[in-house]
Design a protein around this nucleic acid. Structure first.
Length: 422
RNA sequence: GUGGGUGUAGCUCAGCUGGUUAGAGCACCAGAUUGUGGCUCUGGGGGCCGUGGGUUCGAGUCCCAUCAUCCACCCCA
C-alpha cells in the first residue's frame, strides 16, 4: 500500500504530460479567444457550499463527497465540481459590481468518491467556464459553441451535441407533479432503480437504460413538451442561434442534468470514441444558483469538461501532441575532466541549449548508449587528449561525423549546430 | 453501494488434468570493441506466483476470504 497511489487516483507520468500540456495550451488559447479570464479557487470549500449549491439530494452530495473536519472543527469538502466555488468567489468578491457579464474559466482537479471505471477517477480534472449576469439565449449558444470549437482545435471529430431544456422552478414543479401522476400506475413494473427515482428524481426515469422502462415510458410527455412560455421561447432562441452558427445537434427531451441548480438549457457532448462514460462535456444554465447560496438573483450558465475523458478520446482518435524536443547535447567524459564537463554543460545551458552529462562515472561507451537513449543529437567528448590541447570532440549522433573544436569556441559552435538542426 | 473478469520478472504474457531448482520476449547491466551509441552475438542480475487461510504426501495450479485492478450498473466529467 505504501507504494501504491490511492484507489481512483493516478500519476500522470512524463510520457503523458505532453498531452496534458497540449490540452492546457489549447484551453488558454480558446478561452482567451472567447473572452474568458482564468480564476483559481481553493481545492476545498466549506461543506455547506456544496450542500446548498449542488443540492443535498444529488448523488454527488449524498454519497460522493470527500468531507473532513479540520483542526478547528470546521467541516470542509474537497470540491466535487467547479461551479459552486466559482459562484462563491463571484459573490465574495462582489463581481456583480464589475462590468457584466463576468466570464470566467478554470482548470483543475475535482474529487468524487465513486467506483473507478474507464474514464472515471476519484481525482479527476475539469476544464470549465461560467458566465454570470447574462440571460440572453445567445450566451447559451456561445457556451455550447466554445467546447465544440475547442474539441475541433484538439483534432477531435467524432462527437455529438445533445440539447434539452429542463425548465425553470415554475414549470418544472408543475411538470414533476404531472409526471408522477402519469407514472403512478406503472411504477410497480419499472426496474428497481426507477422505483427509487420515482420519489427522488422522477425525471430520471425517462433517462433509464433499462429496455422495459424505456418501453413503458415511451409515451410519457417530457419536460420539453410542457415548458412555460418563457422557457419555451428561450429554448427556441437557443436553437435558432445554434442553427445560425451551423452547429448540428440532437434535441434530446430525455436528457437530464444531475445537479439541482440547472434551469432552462441543458446540454451534453458525447464522444463516440469512448465506452460507457462517453460524456466529455456537460453544462447548462443555472439562473438561481447565486440566490440559492445567498447572493442576488444573477443568472448564470457554464459547462464542465472531463479532461481525462477528452484525453482518452484524443488517444482513440490518434491525436499526437508535438513531441518534446528534450535534450540537445550530452557532455561525455573519458576518464578525466569531470569538473570541465560540468562547466561545459552549464555554459551550454546558459546559452539556451538543453544539455546534460553523466553523473555515474560510466564508461564512455555506456555514456554514448545513454545519450542515444535520450535521443540526443550532439555529443561533446572530453578526454585526456582533448584536455591536453584545450579542445573537445563534437560528434553528430545522427550522421556519426566528428569534429574537433577548441573549448573556447565550443559553446558557440554547438549553439550554431542546434539552431541549424531545428 | 451492486454484478462480472483479472492478479506470475520493470513491461507483455506462457506455465497442459496439482508433481523436481517457475519460463519466454522486450527492457536493464556487462563483455565481444582497455576513447565511440544504434545492428548482431555471448553472458548476467532480477520473481514472499497480490495477501491470508484451507484441502493435499505435495499448490503458481483446487477451495474460501481479503485487497488491488479492469469492465459494467447507479451516477457523472
Amino acid at each position: 500500500m505504501l507504494t501504491k497511489a490511492p484507489r481512483g487516483t493516478r500519476d500522470i507520468l512524463p510520457a503523458e504530460t505532453g498531452m496534458w500540456q497540449f490540452f492546457e495550451e489549447k484551453v488558454r488559447e480558446v478561452s482567451r479567444l472567447f473572452g474568458y479570464s482564468e480564476i483559481r479557487t481553493p481545492i476545498f470549500e466549506h461543506t455547506e457550499l456544496f450542500l446548498r449549491g449542488v443540492g443535498e439530494v444529488t448523488d454527488i452530495v449524498s454519497k460522493e463527497m470527500y468531507t473532513f473536519t479540520d483542526r478547528g472543527q470546521r467541516s470542509l469538502t474537497l470540491r466535487p465540481e467547479g461551479t459552486a466555488s466559482v459562484a462563491r468567489a463571484y459573490l465574495e468578491h462582489k463581481m456583480q459590481g464589475e462590468a457584466q457579464p463576468v466570464k470566467l474559466y478554470y482548470v483543475g482537479p475535482m474529487f468524487r468518491y465513486d467506483r473507478p471505471q474507464a474514464g472515471r477517477y476519484r481525482q479527476f480534472h475539469q476544464y470549465g467556464v461560467e458566465v454570470f449576469g447574462a440571460s440572453d439565449p445567445t450566451v447559451d449558444a456561445e457556451v455550447i459553441a466554445l467546447p465544440l470549437s475547442f474539441f475541433r482545435s484538439l483534432g477531435l471529430k467524432d462527437f455529438t451535441l445533445h440539447i434539452n431544456s429542463v425548465g425553470c422552478p415554475k414549470c418544472r414543479g408543475e411538470y414533476r407533479q404531472q409526471l408522477q401522476a402519469s407514472l403512478k400506475e406503472i411504477v410497480g413494473e419499472l426496474c428497481k432503480d426507477c422505483a427509487e427515482r420515482y420519489d427522488k428524481n422522477p425525471m430520471r426515469i425517462l433517462d433509464c437504460k433499462n429496455e422495459q422502462c424505456q418501453e413503458l415510458t415511451k409515451d410519457v410527455p417530457a419536460q420539453l413538451e410542457l415548458l412555460c412560455e418563457e422557457c419555451a421561447d428561450h429554448f427556441a432562441a437557443v436553437r435558432e442561434a445554434l442553427d445560425a452558427l451551423g452547429e448540428s445537434y440532437i434535441v434530446n427531451p430525455r436528457l437530464v442534468r444531475g445537479l439541482d441548480y440547472y434551469t432552462k438549457t441543458a446540454f451534453e457532448i458525447m464522444s463516440s470514441e469512448l465506452g460507457a462514460q462517453s460524456t466529455i462535456c456537460g453544462g447548462g444554465r443555472y439562473d438561481h444558483l447565486l440566490s440559492t447560496i445567498g447572493g442576488p438573483d444573477v443568472p448564470g450558465i457554464g459547462f464542465a469538461m472531463g479532461i481525462e475523458r477528452v484525453l482518452l478520446a484524443m488517444e482513440a482518435a490518434g491525436v499526437q501532441p508535438r513531441a518534446d524536443r528534450g535534450t540537445d547535447v550530452f557532455v561525455a567524459t573519458a576518464g578525466v575532466a569531470a569538473a570541465e564537463a560540468l562547466k561545459v554543460t552549464l555554459a551550454l545551458r546558459q546559452a539556451q541549449v538543453a544539455a546534460d552529462k553523466d553523473y555515474l562515472g560510466r564508461s564512455l561507451k555506456a555514456q554514448l548508449k545513454y545519450a542515444n537513449r535520450l535521443g540526443v543529437r550532439y555529443l561533446v567528448i572530453l578526454g585526456a587528449e582533448e584536455m591536453q590541447n584545450g579542445q573537445a570532440t563534437l560528434r553528430d549522433m545522427q550522421t556519426g561525423e566528428q569534429e574537433t573544436v577548441t573549448l573556447a569556441a565550443l559553446t558557440e559552435r554547438v549553439v550554431a549546430l542546434v539552431r541549424e538542426a531545428k
